[in-house]
Design a protein around this nucleic acid. Structure first.
Lengths: 95, 95
DNA sequence: GACATATTTAGACGATTGTATCAATATCTC
DNA sequence: GAGATATTGATACAATCGTCTAAATATGTC
């Protein structure tokens, strides 16, 4: 389990970005306009998320589209389950 | 989902402490001697983990015994499952 | 009470982080 | 190519963080 992963998740703006990407893939601009900080600052957060492999990108003409890398989230859940027994299978369904 | 939780998990020393507590409950000193940093520094980490409600303490004479708060880990797993669909129930069993 | 042990608190310091501004790169349209 | 839009890169700076040392608090033993 990479250190950059947990550091990436430690910031609330980045977690919010991830939740936005849960709904649908979005361009950097679409993401940035959801936050009161500078576009360049959001771009920095996107870079952190990408370095942690939590998101992936694809160029679409002028735009760059971001999407969640769900594989990594599965690894996160496994990390907690295996080490801390943090969730039983049945209970999680109703959460 | 509290911000202090993710910040607490962001440090590798703190994650290592949590893993140590998975094996068995330990006193602050037993935890501290596992790390090459000053006891006071480990104590600081323990404070962060406690503030995030990831661990609980109980005084035992001179000692203070730390234990995992497994409830919070269940919440973490639920956070990722519900928001990111990060783990299916069957697959997690074999992880 | 005096002393030893266990742990935390306080204060300081260098490193990292989040944000800002400005410059640079990439693509599109004309 | 020139200009517009989208995004990132570079640099700076204040705030937070991890660690340290030294002091303070709590308990146990004599």
């Amino acid at each position: 389990m990479d250190d950059s992963l947990f550091r990436a998740l430690a910031d609330p703006t980045r977690r919010k970005i991830l939740e936005l990407l849960t709904e649908k893939d979005r361009t950097a601009g679409e993401i940035a306009e959801q936050f009161p900080i500078a576009f360049a600052s959001v771009s920095h957060h996107l870079g952190v998320l990408k370095a942690a492999d939590l998101v992936a990108t694809e160029r679409e003409g002028q735009f760059i589209r971001y999407r969640l890398n769900t594989t990594v989230f599965q690894e996160v859940v496994r990390y907690f389950m295996t080490r801390f027994g943090g969730g039983d299978q049945k209970g999680a369904e109703n959460a």
